[in-house]
């Protein structure tokens, strides 16, 4: 999991260095949607680094890039990246170029945020109006979203996904290798909720009164619930193998899908992992 990877990187550096500069050169940008009365969309895609999104009361979007020294890797002369600083730089302190390369482009109430250079160990902190919709992607890093009421699309390849107090705008989330954890405090029947992971755990928390139709599919995993799920019978499959010397063989199997209702059904919620 990426979390481990980041902390390993951090351990590779002497502790004294961490103490000297816990986080260096944060850079901030502020931008407004062209039409603040209409809910806007923020799109952000990273190769390395975490994404942290929170809602605030302003109509503007605040973007802050945090580059922690601890997570930095150093490029050596041979062009390869290493966890430890260049030998020649031993005992020296790394100085960050202040130009982080944060770029915000806005078109038709859609804000594209990008980084010119994307160093490992960086975190992009976003503060957005609560009604904003999000499209977030990171290859190597975690995504966390809190309190955003717009539609949320989130995709993390190697990191974890944490979504807290969201749901009313719909959530479509995928964590390929990491863990996906969502706390939905409000759902809206017209907004689908879909969560998937290949190797990770999918952990969903709902209010006790949530009306929902659950479709849970786990090929090799187990499914646990603290809810009284009213199960809908899964179709049973009957296969007949080709008749061989030993005669035909029947195989009866139930699909690995579980469909069930919470509080007599309602909102569609799909969960899937391997």
């Amino acid at each position: 999991m990426t979390r481990t990877q980041f902390s390993t990187t951090a351990l590779g550096l002497p502790l004294s260095l961490l103490a000297q500069a816990p986080s260096a050169a944060p850079s901030r940008l502020k931008a407004a949607f062209r039409d603040p009365a209409r809910p806007g969309t923020v799109r952000l895609s990273l190769l390395h680094g975490d994404i942290v999104v929170k809602a605030h009361d302003s109509n503007e979007v605040m973007v802050e890039l945090e580059q922690s020294l601890a997570g930095q890797r150093t490029r050596r002369r041979d062009g390869e990246e290493h966890d430890r600083p260049d030998k020649d730089a031993e005992g020296l302190k790394r100085i960050f170029a202040p130009s982080s390369g944060l770029v915000i482009e806005e078109e038709n109430n859609v804000m594209h945020i990008s980084l010119k250079s994307n160093e490992r160990g960086s975190t992009v902190n976003l503060l957005v109006p609560a009604k904003t919709s999000l499209t977030l992607y990171t290859l190597q890093g975690d995504i966390s979203v809190e309190n955003v009421k717009g539609e949320i699309e989130a995709n993390a390849t190697h990191g974890d996904l944490r979504l807290t107090d969201v749901g009313v705008g719909g959530v479509v989330a995928h964590a390929l290798h990491g863990e996906l954890k969502a706390v939905l405090t409000q759902v809206n029947r017209a907004r689908p909720l879909s969560f998937s992971s290949l190797h990770g755990k999918v952990d969903l928390t709902l209010l006790a009164a949530t009306k929902a139709n659950l479709a849970v599919h786990s090929m090799r995993g187990e499914i646990f619930s603290d809810f009284d799920v009213e199960m809908v019978a899964a179709p049973v499959r009957v296969e007949e193998t080709k008749r061989g010397e030993n005669g035909g063989k029947y195989r009866v199997s139930a699909s690995q899908s579980v469909t069930g209702k919470l509080n007599r059904g309602g909102q569609q919620i799909a969960l899937k992992n391997l």
Partner: peptide, 11 residues
């Protein structure tokens, strides 16, 4: 444009 709307379309 939104993944949610497209999922809704499939449903």
């Amino acid at each position: 444009g939104s993944a949610g709307a497209r999922l809704q379309g499939i449903s």
